[in-house]
């Protein structure tokens, strides 16, 4: 088991109960999607996993260790993180952004250079063209690819993604989702992926966790959820992708 969260709770100092007793597990290589409407506590849950937010209750075990026993910086250097908005350092080139964590871990320069070049290729950017550019000189999709490359820099067992594809146009987003699935197959990392897009969760994740107002309302594989939503809220979330799929089927049938 790569990750297991038990009864995670977060009450902010101002009294907001953002996360209320959330439990889940992520197996090695598995992709868990956390889905729910804006403000339901997805980001807070994700940030507790690498201790950017300290839980006020519950426990987290990563690779068999209780995370509160690890130094936060050491933990974060072992877990890849793609934050909401790309979060790239504007004063660093693509290569420097990707090299941040390896440098913190004191890798030697040759190893860092080789790793950076390999990652640029893996996220389907061009070493010759993009390596020395600054984030401001890239498109939104390219920036997101760099953010993913940066999160993968030290070959982490676990990747955390917070609406990583949310702000992109549909074509770019589709391409990026495909590449993400391919990378996961090639590199075998586990992932916790926060999204508010049910279609994305259905297409990419192995398992889906539905949150509402800080609580878990349903956990299951995409097939489980489609077969038996089990909850009116989940039903609601599934309605839109279903409608769209049917409409497209009808159109295609009509043309045939």
């Amino acid at each position: 088991m790569t990750l297991s969260a038990d009864a995670l709770t977060k009450r902010f100092p101002d009294g907001t109960l953002a996360v209320d007793g959330v439990s889940f597990t992520v197996a090695a290589g598995e992709c868990l999607a956390i889905i729910g409407e804006s403000g339901c506590g997805k980001t807070t849950t994700l940030k507790m996993l690498n201790r950017l937010v300290e839980p006020t209750g519950g426990s987290i075990a990563f690779a068999g260790e209780e995370v509160t026993t690890l130094k936060p910086e050491a933990l974060r250097r072992r877990i890849g993180w793609v934050m909401q908005g790309d979060g790239l350092f504007p004063h660093m080139t693509v290569a420097e952004n990707i090299a941040v964590t390896p440098r913190l871990l004191n890798w030697d320069k040759a190893r860092i250079d080789a790793r950076v070049d390999a990652l640029i290729e893996q996220v389907r950017l061009s070493v010759s063209e993009h390596r020395g550019r600054y984030p401001a000189q890239l498109s939104g999709g390219q920036r997101q690819r760099v953010a993913i490359a940066r999160a993968l820099s030290v070959e982490p067992e676990l990747l955390l993604l917070d609406e990583a594809f949310g702000a992109l146009d549909p074509l770019t987003r589709g391409a990026l989702q495909d590449d993400f699935t391919r990378l996961r197959r090639e590199l075998g990392f586990a992932a916790v992926m926060v999204t508010h897009d049910m279609a994305e969760a259905l297409l990419i994740a192995d398992r889906i966790l539905v949150m509402k107002a800080g609580r878990v309302v349903r956990t299951g594989t995409p097939e489980d959820l489609l077969r038996d939503p089990g909850d009116a809220y989940v039903e609601e979330l599934l309605a839109m992708p279903r409608q769209q799929a049917r409409a497209i089927e009808r159109l295609e049938a009509g043309h045939a």
């Binding site: 690498n50 910086e73 974060r76 250097r77 934050m83 979060g87 941040v100």
Partner: peptide
């Protein structure tokens, strides 16, 4: 603040 959080998230200490 997003960039500062990115620094923490990539594993930098406050000094780094």
């Amino acid at each position: 603040p997003v960039v500062r959080e990115a620094a923490r998230g990539t594993g930098m200490t406050p000094l780094q």
